[in-house]
Nucleic acid binder design. Sequence first.
DNA 1: ACGAGTAGGACAAACGTTTGTACAAATGGA
DNA 2: TCCATTTGTACAAACGTTTGTCCTACTCGT
Lengths: 340, 340
Amino acid sequence: MAVTIIDVAKKAGVSPSTVSRVITGSSRISPQTTERIRTIMDELGYVPNSIAKSLVSKTTNSIGLVLPKPAEELFLNHFFSELIRGILTQCSRAEIDLMMTTGATEREEVDAVSRLVRGRKVDGILLLYSRKEDPTIEFLQKQDFPFVLVGRSNYETPIYTVDTDNKQAAFDATRHLIDQGHQRIGFVSGPPNLVISEDRKEGYLKALESAGLPLRPEWILEGDFLQESGYRAMSIIMSQPERPTAFVVIDDMVAFGVLRGLTELGVRVPQDISLVGFNNIAVTELTSPPLTSIDIGIYELGYTASQLLHKIVKGEPASQNRLIIPHRLIVRESSLFRVN
Amino acid sequence: MAVTIIDVAKKAGVSPSTVSRVITGSSRISPQTTERIRTIMDELGYVPNSIAKSLVSKTTNSIGLVLPKPAEELFLNHFFSELIRGILTQCSRAEIDLMMTTGATEREEVDAVSRLVRGRKVDGILLLYSRKEDPTIEFLQKQDFPFVLVGRSNYETPIYTVDTDNKQAAFDATRHLIDQGHQRIGFVSGPPNLVISEDRKEGYLKALESAGLPLRPEWILEGDFLQESGYRAMSIIMSQPERPTAFVVIDDMVAFGVLRGLTELGVRVPQDISLVGFNNIAVTELTSPPLTSIDIGIYELGYTASQLLHKIVKGEPASQNRLIIPHRLIVRESSLFRVN
DNA sequence: ACGAGTAGGACAAACGTTTGTACAAATGGA
DNA sequence: TCCATTTGTACAAACGTTTGTCCTACTCGT
């Protein structure tokens, strides 16, 4: 049916191996032959069968992207699309195919990765987010399969990683509020099993401490990365007798929920309560008031991670195994209010 | 290195073909043998090499997703992430891998698809959006390769398609404004080479006509699907001597740009100018004012398209080759103002 | 003019599966 | 008891490449 290397060889009157060497650009073929065969390939419309190639070369020219469990919820947070945008752009430039996978449960996730990895469908794996205990990471390590993690690893073993300095970022966010005069600052966190939640909480706590502010556990709430959890957090906080005057919120999407909750309760932002979010996703500018956020360079995070993985897969050892993408605070109206 | 079917066969004292038939579940193998071999596969930790399997079966258990040209811009519009969310969820449930591809130019896009298709890396292709003239579609048709298009095709030939009734949707949006008493309604369109732009414009025009309202070409503007183009559109419109009292905007993201432009110019929404957008992406609720929009069921669009493609790839002919996902108008504050 | 060295290409094995066909043993009917 | 089926398994070819090794025919120096 399709044109194979053999058809080309026949028409050119050479052996398949010669054609193959033309394709791979071996030096053993004379320029004339190369030229002649190239022409014939074009005439016949030959395209190499990448499956066959993969079988012998044990390489696929594609990488796998493993998305955190609930694909359904995933893209509800703009963070992931932005990350994928960076990854995809890099892959596209490098002419590498990107394979996406996910699983409804942790178990399914490992299965899916296993299919990809041990079925040799990809050359490397890109992991988004890390849990404190992550079966997928453990699996990949045991298989000694190349992978890069976006986020900090909680494991002792060295892992290729592209990350934000989340502790510092949270410190900066909190510090900003303190600089605005706030003394009572709450924190809306993410799922406790994620490394990122811990890191950001730690930064927040450190900032409080360094400013000599007391820790108020009842002002620290846990959620996930969806709007709803921010909304819920507010209904809890606002029913308390004593309230913070500002919140550091682990994620912009959650911060939107917080904002919505406050607005519905008639609380003014930033006059009554100030807010700082994380990630600086595109819509932070559009809300009212626009949201102060830490820009962590999501796109670059993805782009860099993809780049690093490609290097590793090709066997070019990277200079370091932990890359940090710089962050910066973007001040908008939601925190522009000085407390006297 | 890795465990192969041969290792399993050896250990079991049978031939590789027997093991293979156990895997594929052929009826020719006795239950005892099946059971015995299953155990051995588990012991050895055997995972089939999908590449080898693909080579002989000419099937890959993955589909390709072709993203419209600029991957860089792509995810700036939440539309695509939502679509991919639907696609990915379906793929994940069907245990099919999703391969993403894109190209910086039209030429590159076709090349990338060609590599995927003729290199046999995927069994089918999912296309997002369609241009009036689309080289990728033409290529796939010529290759007689299974594909499904999200969006209406402009070609005569029958193409599997999952779409919104965009003419009707635009009609409904416009009609809503007319019902609010508006007589002077502008339209911010998308790139003229896209089928969707044409369809929505057509619906808009039809609604005007059916209400006996005159067509004002200077109130029809073209943009892309990014915020900026909405912003620019407003600066053009607002410099005109006579202005509309409402706009139908082809896309929510663009509508945000419009909103921002108007706000900066001190124009009140909806009192001075009302707005209706399309797609009902998640953040429409968060803007001030919240944006009226047509919910086109993006997630289902993706889910259904993926499902349809899988059917086609498997050879189960679908009942119809054009599926329409229903839409509905979601009225929010941006159009809640009656013109007397 | 002759042997050594080199360049250009052919051959065949290998990658890990699937699958059509052949074969042996077991079963059944007469 | 014997032949005809059926059942279960083995054999080998095929999928389309890549790559190590071998072969042939130059080119060049002497």
